[in-house]
């Protein structure tokens, strides 16, 4: 490992023929900071994953979040259709979907709690139990696998000293394998919280983790 400052390998701006900054590739400069109330209703259900700290006990949908929830409701002909964005928003605030959270979402949308549980467990992005501050999802599907994704997983597990699905002792990391993240041209792709880190090699993993830890502090 060199002592060079951390450079995100993941924005795929470090391969190919383009001279772009990470912000330009990711569109951060274009999107800017999205308002907590969701902005225009058309995009209120699309989540920025912006809260750094998730509070399992946080109030569900107050103030700006209540506005955002109500905007979501206006975009669908049925209340039930708001379920997926609503669960997403709840997870955004609380970090995972506890039985109490599912129950509350069911109440808000006039659905049965069992129904909500059925839907929530169908989708992999809803965490059914708490995860680390950084949820590391390593794609090990074919294209990344051909490029050595298994070794990348091992590197993460070694660094975090965890087994797959476990949360590290310091609460910083939960490492899981993920299915294809649709970044096959930039293997190995790793999704950490909302971000894609692409072209990740085992050698870069410790530095990446150090960087994430520092970012969280």
């Amino acid at each position: 490992m060199s002592d060079a400052p951390f450079r995100n390998p993941g924005w795929a701006g470090n391969t190919g023929e383009f001279d772009l900054t990470e912000e330009q590739v990711r569109g951060d400069d274009f999107v800017g900071e999205r308002p907590k109330d969701g902005g225009h209703p058309s995009g209120a259900g699309a989540l920025p994953y912006m809260l750094a700290e998730k509070e399992p006990e946080a109030e569900l949908f107050e103030g700006e979040y209540q506005e955002r929830f109500e905007k979501i409701l206006t975009r669908y002909p049925t209340k039930q259709a708001s379920l997926l964005p609503t669960l997403g928003l709840a997870q955004e605030l609380r970090g995972y979907l506890s039985p109490e959270t599912m129950d509350r979402c069911a109440e808000l949308l006039d659905l049965s709690p069992a129904y909500v549980r059925g839907v929530a467990t169908f989708y992999t992005m809803y965490n059914k139990r708490p995860v680390g501050r950084h949820l590391v999802q390593v794609c090990t599907n074919i294209s990344c696998n051909l490029a050595g994704a298994d070794e990348v997983v091992d590197a993460f597990l070694r660094y975090t000293d965890t087994e797959l699905g476990e949360t590290s002792e310091d609460g910083n990391f939960t490492v899981i394998e993920a299915e294809c993240l649709a970044a096959c041209g930039f293997p190995t792709c790793v999704q950490i919280n909302s971000r894609y880190y692409e072209n990740v090699t085992p050698a870069e993993v410790p530095k990446l983790c150090e960087h994430l830890k520092a970012e969280g502090e």
Binding site: P99, D103, S112, P113, Y115, G118, T121, F122
Partner: peptide, 22 residues
């Protein structure tokens, strides 16, 4: 018309269940 039962999870991990202890 009391949706107490549901399928949780998916694929071959799917199983019938109620809302936790409900």
């Amino acid at each position: 018309q009391d949706h107490r039962l549901t399928v949780v999870e998916r694929g071959n991990r799917s199983v019938i269940d109620t809302f936790f202890d409900e």
